[in-house]
Design a protein around this nucleic acid. Structure first.
Lengths: 208, 208
DNA sequence: GCAAGTTTACATTCATGTATGTATGCCTGT
DNA sequence: ACAGGCATACATACATGAATGTAAACTTGC
């Protein structure tokens, strides 16, 4: 029964993306065939090739549905009326990101990114990740330097090093937890890690 | 000119593993064909199938050449005559691991593990990683609990949380740096991150 | 009726595994 | 010590299957 209405066509496009998430997740991106994805969505490969140029295009379209730059995370937690201290902003943004990560779609896609795909040739995970990381680094280091000027950072804590620590810790946390979400409760352990990091990196009461 | 001496056969086996590292690295594990690996080693697929059961077997053999459990790292830095404080042991082990990571073979293989392979079906990265991580967690948490009993840990620092933080940070550091080793000098930034972590997680002078 | 959306059919490529060929190293008996 | 004989260490050839991309057919909204 080909040729649906325009809205139905858009629905099959979404169904194909949903299917891609499922199949990529359980078979891995490279072993997943477009045939399997199409069947998962109740379609045939023809539908895939109509909506997407090829597997790589489908993959990137899937990513676009969950993209969320740090900038936006910060905007979400920042109130233009009463701005937070820079460390507070970063901390809240991290907590917010943790919450989002647990949303089913976000969790699926990030699991795929970390554990179910390899960077090579037509996908180029590295360029994508590097770009994201650079942007993240720039905005974070900015806040941390401000925090230092405010005297909010521990005296021997270098902003750039703290920035790398936070990025590595957060990325590593995602990596570890997504590998096996049953090993610990992210919504308990995650926040405690974030809290401990910011508490300890900050200028402590009693510290000279 | 087939049929080499026993020593030569072992040499071709090593050559095949070297070739696998190179081809896996630049093409990704799934896109790498045994043909390409064999040619990289100056052999044919026959040689590969003689020495290894299939690609998965070859892959695991490649991993076996760089395996280094945390236990061994700790043994390397610990002097049975004069044992270190637990936090010192962990710190030294981390630094030692960073050094090893920069060795060409280790760097290549870990880059493959983090960025050039996907967990699915006959490879099962997840089981492998989970096992490693669990072992790592257990031995680290042990030391951190000892550190806490010694009063060496900051008063609001939970050993299990600190353990996850360190593991995530270290794993994230590897992940980030291996993605693009030119972005920063690991032998500068790495140690400074480790130092900052242990300094700040430890009980600080002046802390109540 | 025309074009959007989807199916079916087909041609091509490519990796895998296996089976077979083959020359050489190694060993054993004498 | 050396002459078979056998297992080793590969190379080559082939059969198979699976995935891709494209072209053509079909079906329905507008």
């Amino acid at each position: 029964m080909p040729k649906r209405t325009k809205a139905e066509a858009e629905a099959t496009r979404e169904a194909l993306l949903d299917a891609a998430e499922i199949v990529f997740l359980e078979r891995g991106v490279s072993r997943a065939s477009l045939e399997q994805i199409a069947r998962q969505a109740g379609m045939t490969r023809g539908a895939v090739y109509w909506h997407f140029k090829n597997k790589s295009d489908l993959f990137h379209a899937m990513l676009d549905r969950v993209k969320m730059p740090l900038r936006q995370l910060l905007d979400d937690v920042e109130d233009p009326e009463r701005p937070h201290a820079p460390l507070t902003s970063l901390r809240l943004a991290c907590l917010h990101a943790l919450e989002r990560l647990q949303r089913p779609r976000s969790q699926r896609v990030h699991t795929i990114l970390f554990h179910r795909c390899e960077s090579s040739g037509d996908i180029d995970m590295l360029g994508l990740q590097s770009h994201l990381a650079q942007e993240c680094y720039d905005t974070m280091v900015e806040r941390l330097e401000q925090a230092q000027r405010d005297g909010a950072l521990g005296k021997d804590v270098d902003p750039e090093i703290a920035c790398r620590m936070l990025m590595s810790m957060f990325g590593g946390l995602m990596h570890d937890w997504l590998r096996d979400p049953t090993q610990y409760a992210l919504d308990e352990t995650g926040p405690r890690m974030i809290e401990t990091f910011f508490t300890r990196i900050a200028h402590l009461p009693g510290e000279r």
